[in-house]
Simulated scan of single mutants.
Amino acid sequence: MGDEAGPELTANVQRALRVMEAAGAHAAEVPVQQLAREAGLPLATVQRLLKALARDGYLTELDDGAFTLFPDRSSLEQLDRVRPVLTSLRDELSAAVYLTLYEEGEIRVMEIADSAQAPRVDRWVGFQDAGHATALGKSVLREMDGKARAEYFSRHSLTGLTPRTITRREELLRQLDSSPAAPVVMDREEYARGTTCVAVPVYSGDQIGSLGISFRSDRMYRTSRVRAGLLSSAMRVTMGLSLPD
């Protein structure tokens, strides 16, 4: 099976590189149709690759459906300020660290700090479509008012990703509003089997986001240590994101 998958994997990598080379040839955003022409690939193939590249942070998908290899400079400067905090938290807790922000009605992963010793969770479903199933998403939803939540749920279905995923809105809201460990939120294998995630809210000015970690569910963690590390780091991240450029 490995030999059969090898050539196809190589071909996929080659196609992805062609798409990124096409995107990198432009200083601004590029429509998908133009990227397909310049990469010499079918439109459907390019659309699939673009979604995967954007999901993994190699490209940025803009509101109008175009893509760019160059994110907004102010966002880059913000991330530069908080990246050492994420790395420090990763090393302190030996867990992959994630930073999200709620942008244009979507929960977007802005940065991931992982390593061979602290691998990231397999993002088999984009986090922006799984806010109800991740601690990162639930942390953002917990901070929203009723109107913002209703608007979010009008566009996102509560899909069952594992047997533990909460798929009833009323049950999810009860959990968010009655969390005894607030502002710490958890998901226990609700997004991916075998993975637990813990998250707390962060802010960029008045923009809500979340800071979280993921780890194997069979690992034992001192709850007080995780809580203290996340809350302390969240304060530093909020300061870094909220400073003027």
Rank of each mutant, 00 (worst) to 15 (best):
P244Q: 08
L43H: 11
P71T: 03
A39G: 11
E103Y: 09
S242G: 15
L93D: 01
P7L: 03
T68G: 11
A148M: 10
M144S: 07
L79W: 02
T238N: 03
R227G: 01
L230S: 04
V97Q: 02
G209V: 00
G24I: 05
P163W: 09
F153T: 10
F70A: 10
G205N: 12
A23W: 05
E106I: 00
Q14T: 15
A148T: 12
P119T: 08
E171K: 12
M1H: 07
P7A: 04
Y98V: 01
V237Y: 01
S210H: 05
R225E: 13
E4D: 10
T87L: 10
V125W: 07
Y191L: 04
S88R: 12
R108M: 08
E103Q: 13
V82A: 02
E111M: 15
T162A: 07
S157F: 05
V85Y: 01
M1L: 03
G229P: 00
G40H: 08
G146L: 09
M239G: 02
T167N: 08
M20H: 03
Y191K: 07
R15K: 14
A28D: 14
D206Y: 08
V19R: 04
Q14C: 13
Q33G: 07
G105R: 12
P42W: 07
G240C: 01
D3K: 08
L231Y: 02
L62D: 11
P180V: 09
A181M: 11
